[in-house]
Design a protein around this nucleic acid. Structure first.
Lengths: 209, 209
DNA sequence: GCAAATTTTGACCGATTGGACAAACGTTAG
DNA sequence: CTAACGTTTGTCCAATCGGTCAAAATTTGC
């Protein structure tokens, strides 16, 4: 049993990174089936056979991309901890997720594409690792509710709503900017969103007094 | 100048409907480029050349589908009116949107696919009709805020958050069910979601008292 | 019932696609 | 220098794709 991790030369390391970066760009805007190896090769500045020297199949690129993505994607949720004030903890989770939508929109869209198509390649992961993690955090949140630290609602749907509202600014960015127009849709839109989401999740819409 | 609407036989009416229904199914799960005419033809129970007799190009099917979609998709927002209690009005808008996610998930996914890919075919509509409608409703909502009927926040981002949270249950349905598991993820998930969203949007997470 | 119009099909085409392959090119260790 | 190894490319292939076309089958108007 040789090492299951293939040893790689310096050039292989670099070129593989180059390809993954290019593939992220192409896959996230065209979807898996909508993207061609030629497109990715051109974006990576190399010929198609050369690309196929580093990744034997188109699917291998996508698979590698998804593996990396999921690791970083769930990091904010993992950080959600039982230490500190619950409301503050949730607030900063929302803020972190929104920052990820701002800083890694391509990763978000890649993930959205995969789920939209029925998650054919990562279904086991959703039912396994992801479900376990969410269940775990739901228990933490439920604890806060029982302790009277936050209002009593459904912890799972709370997590869904945080995912939905934050990822919306990456996945539906085109629509958001089209609707907001050039003024409100400029660089400040993420700060506006952060302010709004904080208000929504903490206070809701009921008027004061 | 003959009538711009081509006159159609009974068979044409029926077959076109059949094709659009099949295309909705195929496009919404595979995206435009990921879907083939053969797939749609098979789903519609006819041969490829026969399908092409009714729609000359693959794009024509998609275009017809998008036109119909947008009309019904924005109906709930159009109904958002200045009559009646603001909080009730918003509550029922959220409920209607969630019902649409439940009853027309394929339409939601078709739209999501289009936006994800940069909305190449409906960008003018987003910047035109959609923006106008949202701006108009944002003004209504702003009026409610000034009148002290609901809390003061950003009306545009409020609308985004309603879209995001409700459509999430159509677009990310696979993930939602995977995370909730067989028990909580059954048919009751939409009622749980409705209850949660009402609580979130009205009261937020801050504990009572 | 029959001719005209409509609908359906099998066969076909050029373009694009994912991928194979061997030859050429470059690099590196002895 | 040179042999071994790693990298790059041009060429090719089979499969799939969107779409055409003429002929066959069916429906419709009279």
């Amino acid at each position: 049993m040789e090492g299951s991790a293939p040893r790689r030369t310096r050039i292989q390391q670099e070129k593989r990174e180059l390809i993954l970066e290019a593939a992220l760009e192409v896959f996230s805007t065209n979807g898996f089936r909508g993207s061609t190896i030629d497109q990715i090769a051109e974006a990576a500045g190399m010929s198609k056979p050369n690309l196929l020297y580093y990744f034997r199949r188109k699917e291998d690129i996508h698979e590698t991309l998804m593996e990396r993505l999921l690791a970083t994607w769930l990091a904010p949720l993992r950080e959600l901890d039982d230490i500190g004030d619950p409301l503050t903890e949730l607030r900063s989770y929302i803020r972190r997720k929104l920052e990820m939508a701002r800083d890694f929109p391509r990763e978000s869209r890649l993930f959205a594409n995969e789920i939209l198509q029925g998650a054919p390649r990562i279904m086991p992961l959703l039912e396994g690792e992801l479900k376990t993690l969410v269940d775990e955090k739901a228990t933490v949140i439920r604890g806060w509710m029982r302790a009277g630290k936050i209002a009593r609602t459904d912890p799972w749907h709370l997590i869904f709503s945080i995912w939905a509202t934050t990822q919306h600014y990456a996945d539906f960015d085109v629509q958001v900017r089209a609707v907001l127009g050039p003024n409100r849709g400029g660089d400040g839109r993420f700060e506006d969103a952060a302010r709004f989401l904080e208000h929504l999740f903490i206070d809701g819409l009921k008027p004061k007094g």
